[in-house]
Amino acid sequence: MPIAYSRKNFARFQSLIALFLLCLALSVLSDKFLSFSNLWNVMRQISVNICISVGMTLIVLTAGIDLSVGSVLALCGAITAGLLKNGIELPSQNLYIGFTVLGAILAGGLTGSALGAFNGWAITRFNVPPFVATLAMLTVARGLTMLWTGGFPISGLGDTFLFIGTGWFLGIPVPVWISIVVVALAVFLTDKTRIGRYIYAIGGNESASRLSGINVNRVKIIVYTIAGALAAVGGIMVTSRLDSAQPNAGISYELDSIAAVVIGGTSLSGGRGSILGTVQGAIIIGVLNNGLVLLNVSPFWQQVVKGLVILLAVIIDKSNGKNE
């Protein structure tokens, strides 16, 4: 059936087509859009959302959700910045531990992984719905960030650390490299490994997966841990780019991330979707943000437009699902 076939192909590429049309329109409307400096700027901004959205995709594929990524991102960035700048001082023990850049980054990454693992543990051990467990973590991690920073930004982190967020490598910004590596690893995980297959199977039918001998709880904990670690990566990138860990960094990032996942065609009920779809979704949101700014659209209207785009994307995706 050639018609059905071409229709299916169209569905597969429609977000790419949408992206192309969006870029085309923006380059006609704004002479600034199609400049190298602007494009790299967009890419750099997008790379944070790509990192956390990759983690979100894995979770959504298991039919879960993670609302805590924004707060976890802020906490991990703050911990990395704090350790790098101040180290750990224990005056009573007459002890001071200094951190190298690598050490501080590892500590941030471990924090993110631990919080993610905690999410997964709470969800699987106590059967708490992911929405609730990660909503709790959203508040907890934000509170911890405030405690750690005392409510003030931690700034002045040194040139080596700034390289992560602002440096260039082989003519491409470092954050873009980082997101490329993250995406490549995630594609490998989902397409080539057992755990990737289990993620799809659990999201598609948890009961059948459990009966097939899959350790469903273990897979879920792993997935939430990965998402936490990727939130940390995002937090370190944001902190480095601004040369400052802001206590209120990452607020509402979970919404942009979920939007990227959904626009990318991943089903919120699990089992269906892809990492590369999410990447497209994140790029569409990023380009849209950038374009609306370039066109001097009021920030209030920007939010309205973004919301409607998300809704439209899901409606189109649903109607494709019916055609399958």
């Binding site: 799809y200 598609g204 039918n205 001998g213």
Partner: peptide, 17 residues
């Protein structure tokens, strides 16, 4: 309900165990 992951292909269902 308990036997198949309906959204996965024939091949991937067979190899799941």
């Amino acid at each position: 309900k308990d036997g198949l992951v309906l959204g996965l292909g024939v091949k991937n269902n067979i190899s799941l165990t």
